[in-house]
């Protein structure tokens, strides 16, 4: 039994089939990259896995448990953390408060009206900020952060609830090349160390081939190839559809 098992997933918007009959599996401690041109269905797939969208058909299993069509908050409680293609943080709050909110929610302490949230779980939050390398900016408000830094905040938020599966939609977009490599090494390290499953999309092929254990290639909503980086690199169909164009 794999950590994540996806079978026959499909989503259509009106007449456009964004994701069609998608099936794959991901084991704990492994990095799976989903690549494909714009409009291939990557973000739609992420949204179905994260609970932001309901699939039309198909099933999603987490550790063998069907989580298909669950709302996002329930999928999150089941151990799925995610980042978004366009970062979504709480813009009016500080970096610290953003991450602390996740910790509070994870510990089911977010309902209290009786005490101030100030200072709760300080050490845990600071350790997370340390991990993603943004501790020095913890007092800054998210609305004024650079995009690359927001991506780090999102990573810290995704890790704060100790997920088993991490969904990362373009985790390094908006970062300088040197930063990208460092962040991906960080993610890979966490993946191995904590035995997390990581599913990520990325447009930078160097990053994909360096860090992914497996690569899945999407085109027009369908998986046209799935294998090790070497297999995918050698696949003639992939070269024609995707790599050839790049």
């Amino acid at each position: 039994m794999s950590l994540l098992e996806v079978a026959g997933l499909r989503k259509a918007f009106g007449g456009v089939v964004a994701v069609d009959d998608l099936s794959f599996a991901l084991d704990a401690g492994r990095m799976l990259a989903m690549i494909g041109p714009n409009g291939a269905g990557k973000s739609t797939c992420f949204a179905m896995l994260g609970g932001q969208l309901r699939p039309d058909r198909g099933s999603v299993r987490l550790d063998g448990r069907a989580v298909t069509g669950w709302p996002a908050r329930r999928i999150w409680r089941a151990g799925v953390g995610r980042t978004f293609q366009v970062t979504r943080t709480f813009g009016s709050m500080s970096v610290f408060d953003n991450v602390q909110t996740v910790v509070l929610s994870h510990r089911r302490r977010l309902r209290s009206l009786l005490r101030s949230a100030r200072g709760l779980y300080r050490e845990e939050v600071e350790a997370l900020l340390e991990t993603v390398g943004i501790a020095d900016q913890q007092a800054r408000v998210c609305a004024v952060l650079a995009y690359g830094d927001l991506k780090r905040v999102e990573l810290a938020m995704a890790l704060a609830a100790r997920p088993r599966l991490l969904l990362m939609d373009e985790p390094t977009a908006g970062m300088a090349p040197a930063e990208r490599g460092a962040l991906m090494r960080l993610i890979e390290g966490i993946c191995r160390e904590r035995a997390l499953g990581v599913l990520f999309t990325e447009h930078d092929m160097d990053i994909v081939f360096e860090h992914a254990d497996e690569i899945m290639v999407l085109a027009r909503g369908r998986a046209i190839a799935h294998g090790t980086p070497a297999e995918v690199r050698a696949d003639p169909q992939v070269q024609a559809v995707y790599l050839g164009e790049a």
């Binding site: 932001q52 996002a72 908050r73 409680r77 709480f90 813009g91 938020m157």
Partner: peptide, 13 residues
């Protein structure tokens, strides 16, 4: 208020 999508994605109803 700041981001309903993010809030739902961290377990807030």
């Amino acid at each position: 208020r700041d981001s309903p999508v993010r809030a739902e994605a961290i377990g807030i109803d």
